[in-house]
């Protein structure tokens, strides 16, 4: 509880959002109303003069020093999940690299029914739209996981159990 009680229950941030994505995700990001889109196939935030208050590092193979350079004074990088190697790097080098005013955090997310309820409300109000890439039946779960693991899923990959029962009756 200690971790959560430090936070307020804020869910409305009203930030100016720049996204880094590949060509195939540009139209989704437009749909989701991203303010600025950097297509990594032809462009990079590393070469730009823009500075950010927060960088969420969810995927991508950028150097921690690239993130640091793109931060404003007192900005933060939050490493979200990511590969183990990215996490290890951020733990070993991150502390040294981010000794100044810019801070590096690694998120370890915890299930929270309070947060889940809040987001379900936003979905109900159509303020947040879940993006679903593909559906698989239950017997294709291994294929679904494999697809996700390749790292190109656009939003979520769903297993529909009811569909499995009709299509693979014993």
């Amino acid at each position: 509880m200690s971790v959560h009680s430090q936070y307020n229950l804020q869910s409305h941030f009203n930030a100016e959002v720049t996204v880094v994505c590949g060509t195939r995700n540009v139209s989704i990001m437009q749909l989701l109303d991203a303010d600025h889109i950097i297509n990594y196939t032809s462009d990079s935030f590393v070469n730009k003069d823009e500075r950010y208050d927060l960088i969420l590092a969810i995927n991508g193979n950028y150097l921690l020093s690239d993130y640091k350079k793109a931060l404003k004074y007192q900005g933060r990088v939050v490493i979200v999940g990511g590969s183990l190697s990215q996490l290890l790097k951020s733990l070993t080098f991150g502390k040294l690299l981010f000794l100044g005013s810019k801070k590096l955090h690694t998120l370890s997310a915890k299930p929270s029914t309070a947060d889940l309820q809040m987001i379900l409300q936003l979905v109900e109000q159509k303020k947040v739209i879940p993006v679903i890439d593909r559906f698989y039946p239950l017997d294709q779960t291994a294929v679904a996981l494999n697809y996700l693991q390749q790292g190109h899923a656009q939003g979520k990959v769903i297993i529909n159990i009811d569909e499995a029962i009709s299509s693979s009756e014993y």
Partner: peptide, 27 residues
């Protein structure tokens, strides 16, 4: 994150990313 601040999201196309973009913008 505070209102009006600038957020950069790297890896925006997956499950976490598509929610993060929308939540970061939410009013």
């Amino acid at each position: 994150v505070q209102p009006g601040q600038k957020v950069l999201i790297c890896g925006s196309g997956g499950g976490v990313g598509t929610f993060a973009v929308q939540l970061a913008k939410s009013l």
